[in-house]
């Protein structure tokens, strides 16, 4: 009896197309990726229905959380000249090496007088170091006031643009802490700024 031979189909699938797609996606993600930056001060951002993204350039972020205030400025060139200006203001001579190191830190929260020690720390020690926050009070000569003021001048000089401000506050922060920061901004006639929120839908 003749046996009908069923042709055995190969189980191997052609992977070429799949591989193409996978690498296309991979390339896309690599190119668009902006790696998560470790925030020195972790804050739980409140949600809102706003859909406008935070701009990436000429932007200063004031982070408020756990009773501390941190300051961050976008752009390495701006940070370099900002430290020079602050050095002049507080009569501290920052070496080019320190300025270079400072330009790589996106957000910081140390008083000016301990800034040198902080910059001298290694990368790992910087992460471990509990930053005390920038001193702030209601006068027009607090450190936060000067950081903001000089940052605005530097942005105007280098980029010829008005620096935009955003406040990134912790959800559980008491309102008076935020009001202090808003007050500092209003004292130098910065009357338009953003509050950073995350998108929460379905509310």
């Amino acid at each position: 009896m003749a046996r009908i031979k069923i042709p055995r189909k190969s189980t191997a699938i052609d992977m070429t197309a799949m591989c193409d797609v996978a690498f296309l996606l991979l390339t896309f993600f690599i190119l668009t990726a902006k790696l998560k930056q470790e925030d020195p001060l972790r804050v739980d951002v409140p949600g809102s229905s706003v859909k406008v993204n935070v701009p990436d350039v000429d932007m200063a972020t004031i982070t408020v959380g756990h009773g501390k205030v941190f300051f961050g400025l976008e752009g390495t060139d701006l940070r370099k000249s900002l430290l020079e200006e602050i050095g002049k203001k507080y009569t501290q001579n920052f070496t080019p090496d320190e300025i270079q190191k400072f330009s790589l830190i996106p957000t910081f929260g140390v008083p000016v007088n301990t800034l040198k020690q902080y910059l001298a720390l290694s990368t790992e020690d910087k992460k471990k170091y509990q930053q005390p926050g920038i001193p702030i009070d209601t006068t027009t000569n607090s450190e936060l006031f000067n950081w903001i003021y000089q940052a605005r001048i530097v942005t105007k000089n280098l980029h010829n643009k008005e620096l935009r401000f955003a406040i990134k506050g912790d959800s559980h922060e008491q309102y008076p802490e935020i009001a202090k920061v808003i007050d500092v901004l209003q004292k130098q006639a910065v009357n338009k700024f953003s509050l950073i929120t995350s998108l929460n839908q379905g509310k």
Binding site: F29, T32, A33, K34, L35, K36, V45, S48, V50, K51, V52, N53, V54, P55, A166, K168, I182, Q186, K187, A189, N191, K192, F193, S194, L195, I196, T197, S198, L199
Partner: peptide, 16 residues
């Protein structure tokens, strides 16, 4: 990647 990009809520304050 930061997929959920932070959003900015613009606020306007009176000139003090």
């Amino acid at each position: 990647t930061t997929l959920a990009k932070p959003k900015a809520m613009d606020t306007f304050w009176p000139d003090k």
